[in-house]
């Protein structure tokens, strides 16, 4: 029997995990829902696959000070069962990736490290100002998700670094993520939008908007968010924000949609997402 393929490693501690990832040609294997078919198709050729799912520190969600710590290997199914207002934009995305069977395996950390422009949790991580904790034999570093992506399927994480956790600051306000797909399930976003709005006495005091699948990476649109601050998020303010969102996008034609169609969808999708975030912001009581 040919022995082509790879070495499979199953560490149980972060210390072993980062030692294993220092092996030449090592790839972190989380849920495998992307990696297993990519490897089988020859798109990646790992020498070592390091199964991160059995490291206890990488599993579970807990409150740590004024942030929520999500273990990188927490499954999207486990996340989706949560009822945490402060994570709404992330959970909206986690609940619609693939299908139920995919979400039982797929992880938040896997979605982040895959860094697809269309990744459904990524716009939520951006608007909620999440921070990735990366560990390697060289130490620990914390990278805000807004500085994480460098291109389609590319990011600042080195192969020898393990994504251990994702921290999301607990803040007031409401957030949401919505996407456009041709099918409700088992599809990838043609366009995705996330928004976070903080409202005091009916006036927006802080905001963030992120767009997915319409640029080389998921990205924040600060100019769009700024137009909402100081307004009541009325139709005019939202229309202004939509102009900035469209201006910040650079969609391409691909198998899932044309540039023109994406630009056409982006405006109403941004509006719908902002209105959902607004409803949630107005409905939420201060912590």
């Amino acid at each position: 029997m040919p022995t082509t393929g790879f070495t499979y490693l199953r560490p149980l501690t972060v210390a072993d995990l980062i030692r294993d990832l220092a092996e030449p040609g090592a790839f972190a294997l989380a849920g495998g829902t992307d990696l297993v078919p990519l490897r089988a198709a020859g798109a990646i050729t790992p020498a070592v696959l390091v199964d991160v799912k059995h490291v206890a520190e990488l599993r579970g969600v807990e409150t740590e000070g004024d942030a929520i710590r999500i273990g990188a290997a927490t499954t999207l199914a486990d996340l989706g069962e949560r009822d945490g207002r402060s994570l709404d934009a992330i959970l909206d995305g986690a609940k619609i990736v693939g299908a139920a069977q995919t979400r039982e395996r797929a992880t938040l950390g896997g979605n982040l490290c895959r860094s697809s422009p269309a990744g459904d949790t990524l716009c939520g991580l951006l608007v909620l100002d999440a921070v990735a904790e990366l560990q390697s034999l060289d130490g620990i570093r914390h990278v805000p998700v807004r500085d994480f992506f460098t291109g389609p399927s590319r990011n600042v994480k080195k192969p020898s670094e393990a994504l251990v956790s994702i921290r999301v600051p607990v803040r007031e306000g409401g957030s949401a993520y919505r996407r456009f797909t041709y099918r409700r399930s088992m599809d990838l976003a043609v366009v995705g939008v996330a928004a976070w709005l903080s409202i005091e006495d009916g006036v927006c005091v802080n905001a963030a908007i992120a767009i997915g699948a319409v640029a080389p990476t998921p990205r924040l649109v600060p100019a769009a968010a700024e137009t909402l601050v100081g307004t009541t998020c009325d139709d005019e303010a939202i229309a202004h924000a939509c102009e900035h969102v469209v201006a910040a996008s650079s969609p391409i034609d691909d198998v899932r949609g044309t540039r023109d169609h994406r630009l056409r969808v982006l405006r109403p999708l941004t509006r719908d997402t902002l209105l959902l975030a607004l409803t949630r912001a107005l409905g939420s009581s201060p912590p």
């Binding site: 199964d51 199914a77 039982e104």
Partner: peptide, 13 residues
């Protein structure tokens, strides 16, 4: 007890 797609996971996992 949880449903998964067996084509997306390695047996060793």
């Amino acid at each position: 007890g949880r449903r998964i797609k067996s084509c997306l996971t390695l047996a060793v996992m």
